[in-house]
Design a binder for these strands. Sequence first.
DNA 1: TGAGTAATCGACTAACCACTTGATTAATTG
DNA 2: CAATTAATCAAGTGGTTAGTCGATTACTCA
Lengths: 221, 221
Amino acid sequence: MEGREFKDAAFEHFARAASAFGSPKRVEIIDLLAQGERAVESIAEVTGMSMANTSRHLQVLRSAGLVVGRRDGLHVRYRLAGESVREGYRALRALAEDRIAELGQLKAAFFGEVDGAEAIGIDELMARADRGEVMIVDVRPRLEYDSGHLPGAVSIPLEHLNAHLAEMDPETPVVAYCRGPYCVLSAHAVSQLRSRGVDARRLDGGPLEWSAAGLPLAAQA
Amino acid sequence: MEGREFKDAAFEHFARAASAFGSPKRVEIIDLLAQGERAVESIAEVTGMSMANTSRHLQVLRSAGLVVGRRDGLHVRYRLAGESVREGYRALRALAEDRIAELGQLKAAFFGEVDGAEAIGIDELMARADRGEVMIVDVRPRLEYDSGHLPGAVSIPLEHLNAHLAEMDPETPVVAYCRGPYCVLSAHAVSQLRSRGVDARRLDGGPLEWSAAGLPLAAQA
DNA sequence: TGAGTAATCGACTAACCACTTGATTAATTG
DNA sequence: CAATTAATCAAGTGGTTAGTCGATTACTCA
């Protein structure tokens, strides 16, 4: 084998792996699966794609080795194929945030418009949570909470938020989080809470970023 | 702005950044630029592409924010736009090595055929170098050596290797390295040295991996 | 100022990719 | 076994992209 052949083949592999991340919808799928296993139907619903198209994208991801699927009755459930995929996604995001200025503007514009409050960072949350100064609310669907959440967080899926308003102590600030820095659930939660006079802020990050910072997650409840 | 709009826009940015890595030739360019600044002509030569095509790829990388160029007389010199790009490339490589089995086979087949010796890891090299047991040889072109090399390494560009055979002490094993785990220069160096009876092995990695392991590089000489 | 070199641009081609629609397969439940 | 639901497959279409070739621009040096 010649040196050029070897390099071509090796870089071809790298490029194929990168191409799997090269479609917005596939990135969204990976972002979702980073929270845990999920069936095709549910992925299609969250991403707003047709079943056929979702399935197609999942095939692409699978043949690139990024996800694996298993049959479970009528459903086929997919999950990320390993820690290196999560790590790769995190690096891609860090790269984009560092190099693409529009991304920061986009984030600021959207979150400014929706919740109108500064997000809180993981470091700050950790410090204040240790001192028992905040109530941490996980607004993701229950199943995602169960598969791993921040220690001390209570599960109040966004659609049930109004029913749980009474549980909020006006003296204690609330910190809401969802799937990560690009998930919109917590922004809507914060907006709702603030319009009712609760001192609420959004965490910039989710379980993925929390555990990437070396902090432990809690399972079940 | 709607939640869906926001997500579409954000994931679109991620996908565009990933797509920039989505061509084998562009990955090779990034691999090269990870060693330091380089003019278009020289990139075209190493990668075996036409000038026009190389320039085109560099435009793509530049408009994705991964590289920056500056004019220097007749030349335009490009370099990686920041540490996050290097980090992203490293994560992509780790992902591919973890998830794509063929990559490991390819590496084993090629290096087995060319140099026929086990590569040495960074940890092992560090331990043995501390004890002064090995001679470390940097076989990259001189300019790359100057822009950063392993401490204690001597520069013997591959094409001058034969002229420096006398400097090798038969009692001291030689470790050769070049640009990284996918660079073929050191494999050829090892093959030449071994055919002349020198106990030579290839380092699995280059300056990039060395400094990613938290170890310092030396500059100039 | 004119010759020479490095890089870019523009036009074109062939290959590839995302997505849609409609049909098909696989498993479950009455 | 028939009906239902989840997922996949097949074919077709419009849009994008890597690469080539030839022309043009940007700069240097005699």
